[in-house]
């Protein structure tokens, strides 16, 4: 089923560009982490980001909504340039906070450790940003929360606090929180890496359903089955650059770079 969708995606060449990153650089002190990353993604793309630990995957993802500030590079989200400029003296500067907040409201993010707000119920976690950031009416926000809670199978947990749920449930709630903002693109940073093995499946199932709906997703993952079967493009990170990329058939095939082949077969 997903392969049919992948084919559709490939054939549909004139889809709208959703993301473009060019010349992204970042270092921590003397340690360079990203050295010129260039990527673009179209609406409906599901891009898996793979690579060994420390290769810069999270840093890359976190630069996309300026949770981390890069040192150089341009990022376009849904055609809008992220409001950052680089100054010799002051370093990276956010030039327009309102604009950044507005762009962030269209970019969902799902973290490895869920990062739900523990003092709020699941319901409150889901409706806060739609109401406060997007100015959605309360009834509408709650209706939308109901919808996505049903979809992630968490409706009966709506009044629970995050601390009262399993890791798998918390991560599904975090995905529902992102969906409630009706994002144009969703970033996932190793969404299953903190979960007990028996809970990984339920989260992957939800993510696969989102991919099947045609949502635009960028997923940092160690789940090779997901990269191979659900995504239509894979980026292989190594030492802060995208060393190889292409459809899963390439990355998991014989023509991938040696390091990439070694990594995916490890």
């Amino acid at each position: 089923m997903s392969s049919i969708i992948n084919d559709e995606r490939k054939s549909n060449a004139d889809r709208q560009e959703q993301l473009r990153v060019s010349g992204l650089y970042k270092s921590y002190g003397d340690t360079p982490v990203l050295h010129g990353v260039n990527v673009s993604a179209c609406a409906g793309d599901v891009i898996s980001v793979i690579g060994s630990s420390g290769s810069g995957k999270s840093t890359f993802l976190r630069c996309l909504n300026l949770i981390e500030t890069p040192e150089a590079g341009e990022i376009f989200m849904s055609g809008e340039k992220l409001p950052i400029s680089y100054d010799h003296k002051r370093g990276a500067v956010i030039t327009n906070k309102n604009k950044l907040q507005q762009i962030r409201s269209k970019v969902g993010m799902v973290f490895q450790d869920f990062n739900l707000w523990p003092h709020k119920t699941i319901y409150e976690n889901l409706v806060l940003a739609p109401i406060k950031v997007k100015g959605v009416k309360k009834e509408v926000a709650y209706a939308s929360a109901d919808h996505y809670l049903n979809k992630t199978g968490l409706y009966e947990k709506k009044d629970a606090y995050p601390g009262q749920m399993s890791g798998g449930q918390q991560q599904r709630a975090a995905i529902a929180r992102a969906l409630c903002m009706e994002p144009e693109i969703i970033l996932f940073d190793e969404p299953t890496s903190s979960l007990d093995p028996e809970l990984v499946g339920e989260v992957l199932l939800v993510m696969k359903a989102l991919a099947d709906e045609g949502r635009t997703m960028i997923v940092v993952t160690h789940e090779m089955a997901f990269a191979r079967e659900v995504s239509n493009r894979v980026l292989f990170f190594r030492n802060g650059v995208i060393e190889d990329q292409g459809p899963p058939s390439h990355i998991f095939g014989e023509n991938a770079s040696d390091a990439c082949t070694k990594f995916v077969n490890a």
Binding site: I67, K97, I103, V107, L116, W117, V133, R177
Partner: peptide, 15 residues
């Protein structure tokens, strides 16, 4: 991380 999640949703500093 909780603060980051809030920023990622687009909350302003005051919010």
């Amino acid at each position: 991380a909780e603060i980051e999640a809030a920023r990622a949703c687009g909350l302003s500093d005051f919010q």
